[in-house]
Structure formats: C-alpha cells, structure tokens
Design a protein around this nucleic acid. Sequence first.
DNA 1: AACATATGTTCGTTATACGGAATATCAGAA
DNA 2: TTCTGATATTCCGTATAACGAACATATGTT
Lengths: 193, 193
Amino acid sequence: MTAQETSETLSPRIGASLLEARKRAGFSLDELARQSGVSKSILSQIERDRTNPTLATVWRICAALEHPPEALFRAGVVEKPAGIVAVSANATPEVRSEDGLCCLRILGAIETVESVQWYEFAAEPGGLLDSAAHGAGSMEHLTVTEGRLTVTANGETRTAGPGETLRYATAEGGHRIVNDGETPARALMVCTL
Amino acid sequence: MTAQETSETLSPRIGASLLEARKRAGFSLDELARQSGVSKSILSQIERDRTNPTLATVWRICAALEHPPEALFRAGVVEKPAGIVAVSANATPEVRSEDGLCCLRILGAIETVESVQWYEFAAEPGGLLDSAAHGAGSMEHLTVTEGRLTVTANGETRTAGPGETLRYATAEGGHRIVNDGETPARALMVCTL
DNA sequence: AACATATGTTCGTTATACGGAATATCAGAA
DNA sequence: TTCTGATATTCCGTATAACGAACATATGTT
C-alpha cells in the first residue's frame, strides 16, 4: 500500500484545507515552516496529500495557522434510539487510577461524549486521581456521597464531605482528587464542556 | 528530543481519552485492533502516550470506536473562571414528589440548566415520580445505586437494580419512576438536552 | 496447586515521516 | 536574454511509527 493510497482512502484529506488555511493566513511554506517548526518539505508533502502526517505535526501546523484542528474533520452521524435501553452493572466500563486505589465507572452514554460525561467515583483511603486538562470551557462537578475527598484545581484546594459539591474549571492545567481520609470515599462526577 | 517529550509537549495528550473511549465501547486491545486495522501494540503505546501517532492511525481508531475525532482536539484558546466553588449539603435544593415519598436533590449547576441537569434521586418504598415530557431530543439516564426502581417511558417498562443504568427519551409523553420494592432506593439521574 | 483464557506490554524488524540541502519553477528588473 | 529574489518541489540520511510475535499479567476453572 502506497502513501498516496493510505492518505487518500484511510484518512481525511487535509491537504487542501491546510493549503487554503495557509493562503488565508498569507504564509509561504518557508514562513509557515519557521512559525510552526515543521520543515517546509513536509509541509509541501502534506498539502499535496503525499504523506500521512503525525498528530504532533498537524497540531503544530494548526497552532501556527491559528486554525482549529477539529475543522479538518468532517464526520458525525448520530441516531437516537426509542424505548428504554438498559445497561447492566458489569457492562458498565471502569477505569482505574495509576495507584489502583481509585475507580471511575463510566455511566454516561456514548452519544453525549462531546458535551457531557458522568461517572461514579470511588477511592480507597490514600487513593489519588490525577487528571490532565480537558477541553476549553470544561467544568467538573464532584458531589461526595460517602467519606471525604480533597480536590486541587486552579491552584486551590478544598475538601468536601457527604452531600457537598465542588465545581471547578478543568481547562487550565491538571487537577487532582485525593481521599486523604481513613475510610473509602464515593462521589458522583459530572464533566461538562 | 524523545518521543515522550514530543507527545507530551507538542501534541495533544489523546491517550487517556482514547483509552476511555475504548472502555466505553467495551473493546479489548485485540478487538479494537481487529476492528480498526491498527496493531494492538501501537494501540497500547498510543493509549499510554508513548508514541506520536499518524493521522491515519488516529482516524481508523476513531472510526472503529465511533468516537468523533474532533473530541480529541481540545486545546485551550479560551479562558475560564479559576478556583473551586463549594456547595454545602444544605445549600443543595431539593424537590419532592406529590406523594412525598420521592426526593430529588438538584446537583447540577445553574449555568448548565439549558443543556444538562442532574439529580440524586431517593425513593421510599411505594414512592412514585411522574414527570411531564421534556424538550425535543431530551434523554434521561438513571443509574441505580441502591434498591430497585421501575421506569415506564415510551410505552416500555423496565426494572433496574444497583449498578444498572436505564436510558430513555423523554421528549414524547410523560414518564414514571416507581420504587415497587420493599427497601428505599437511590439513583443518579441525568437529563440531557 | 496447575491449567486455560483473556487481557495488556515489550521486543525485533520494516516501512516511512521528518529535517536539511539541493533542485526546480516563476516572477519582475536591468 | 541574464540576473536576481521568492516561491515550491525533490533527494537523501536519520529518527521513529507501525507491525507481528513473543512475553507478561491477571482472572477464573478443574
């Protein structure tokens, strides 16, 4: 399989739209190469769909052009079901923190993954969940149902007990949730964009 | 410059979100490798941000997961309020059903009331909550945490126990939640759109 | 225990994306 | 024409993304 076939059939054709974006920005290949840190030889090949760029490369080009990367993708046909859809307990996917002490059960439906997502959060004593920054404008809402949890976000640290809710932006920098109590803690976590 | 540095500083960290998308889709690495045509060794490395994937690779993974690729590109261009907002337990508003046996604690923030709203739902045995239809396209997601609850919506009736989730459209006609068990029931309710 | 099954990780090799330099290609001006 | 100067493309060595297979790590079964 050649590079041409690959880039034309199995991935989006972003060459034309990148070329257009570059023209719109008034950049030459040399100029864009300087601004983005991507060599102009690669830029030339990408614009003609002769290579299959890495994410990092596309990322840097878009950053230099101030061109939103998501504009390179055209997709999204979603259908919605009728009736009632049931998801059993053991069909609910789980994610664990690195230390293995925290567990996130993913409750949100896949259709809403872009706008809102929610989880049941459980942390053993000492458990720590470190999360990277989410998208621009995203917020996290944590309602503690059991035990105590301490959240650090945006340079601030607060602790909450049962019934209390913490809300914090997650766009800038990572955030951290710790169970520094003596008992297991549980919470509901809702992430909105 | 190492691969790690590249993927962590010069491109979006997509590993975690791809891992989560895969878990949500219920795929193992093997399964996703078959569906997407991407080798599982690469899948493993991508999810741990140990490599810098090409667009074609990301594209095929997203296609197999039915995960919108633009959801991976969420880099901050917008500013957001900082800090953490705490809401105490007794500052959380509650609503009761007509029969007085069901209680809805409103956990969602005011700002998101248009797009998504969420509640902690509690029902004594025999409790019944009747709701009118919501807006077009709206869905309700009910995850039972304790006891058993029976939902009637869209002409269908289903019962769920702890850990189970029921999803149903609420645009057409009213819907009803009943605790027809012998013990109190609790659930998380999320209403979207 | 030993075994089986399913999952995720590491290893060795090949294909290729990348950067830099050389090479077109095309203006306008003397 | 011959010179620039600015543009885009091709060549080539190197770094690395990708693949397949071997390995590791659970988790359950007899």
